[in-house]
């Protein structure tokens, strides 16, 4: 029966990954592997956005974008071996192909940071998404006030993007504080402690400072308390949150935090806008 209003749908691009080729891969830590991919065209992303990475037969996983926006058809990311898909990705190297769709989500807006003192607080793998913003800020260093990075991880063996942290420190115009929870008898020139500890010593100017942070779920509450103690308003703090995501387009329901969808409304949020959400922080 042909009915009024019935239609023949045309092929659709939703959910269809495109192919990207790995150009460079390197193990940052025992469980975190860095990838640089070449794409057919630039991603056109904003810092803090993510992509859905596919291996056909195993499915998809949301992965943060590590490189700053730009014209290069390149994607950098760090993938932690934490499941059936990522375990297989850890065996991939240069020349191998993976599927990609995105970018998705609401990232950082550089305008929120321009002309301000900028503090980045990164815990563990949280440096991976924040690097996209740190690099964007450093590329236009003259347009910001102080630039400070606190980067912490559990042990020296778990630090990612070491060459970047070293290079940023050597510039002289970026304050870098590297910490571990426990030096674990390994060589370590940085500090030992939690990412909350250096905040007070930075002598932040509450009127001028904007903060971007990302880390494991337990980190947020303590950092937010410390920032509040330093007089930084919630509207100057941007948090990048992790949730389970299966679709990336606000349909599958997994990333919901109270009434918002992390994949669409986030993963980057202005803290003052989600401070009331009971499920946002532990």
């Amino acid at each position: 029966m042909t009915m009024p209003g019935a239609f023949e749908p045309s092929p659709v691009a939703n959910y269809l990954p495109t192919t990207a080729i790995i150009e460079e891969a390197e193990n940052f830590t025992a469980r975190d592997r860095y990838f640089r991919l070449s794409l057919e065209r630039p991603l056109g992303h904003r810092p803090g956005q993510f992509v859905m990475v596919s291996v056909f037969g195993l499915g998809e996983a949301p992965i943060s974008i590590s490189n700053p926006p730009g014209d290069a058809p390149t994607l950098e990311m760090v993938i932690r071996n934490a499941g059936s898909l990522t375990q297989v990705l850890h065996s991939y190297g240069p020349g191998d192909a993976i599927g990609l769709r995105g970018p998705y989500g609401h990232g950082f807006d550089l305008h929120d940071f321009l002309g301000r003192d900028v503090l980045f607080i990164c815990g563990g793998l949280g440096l991976a998404p924040l690097r996209s913003l740190i690099r964007a800020v450093i590329d236009r260093r003259g347009e910001f006030g102080r630039v400070m990075v606190i980067s912490g991880c559990r042990t020296p063996a778990e630090e990612i993007y070491r060459p970047d942290l070293t290079a940023w420190a050597e510039r002289g115009d970026v304050d870098i504080v590297r910490l571990v929870d426990n030096a674990a008898n390994m060589p370590w020139k940085g500090r030992v402690g939690l990412v909350t500890e250096p905040i007070a010593g930075l002598k932040l100017d509450p009127a001028e400072t904007v903060v971007a942070m990302c880390g494991p779920p337990v980190m947020y509450k303590f950092v937010l308390l410390e920032l509040a103690g330093a007089g930084i308003n919630g509207d100057r703090v941007f948090v990048d949150l992790e949730r389970r995501m299966r679709c990336g387009v606000g349909k599958c329901g997994h990333c919901q935090i109270n009434d918002i969808y992390c994949c669409q409304d986030g993963p980057v949020f202005r803290f003052s806008e989600i401070a009331h959400l009971k499920e946002a922080f532990l």
Binding site: F56, G57, L58, G59, R246, C252
Partner: peptide
């Protein structure tokens, strides 16, 4: 309406469906 996304593949992985 919440859903999961899963691949169902042939034994050798050469074909399948999402």
């Amino acid at each position: 309406y919440c859903f999961d996304v899963k691949d169902v593949s042939a034994l050798d992985g050469s074909s399948g469906s999402r």
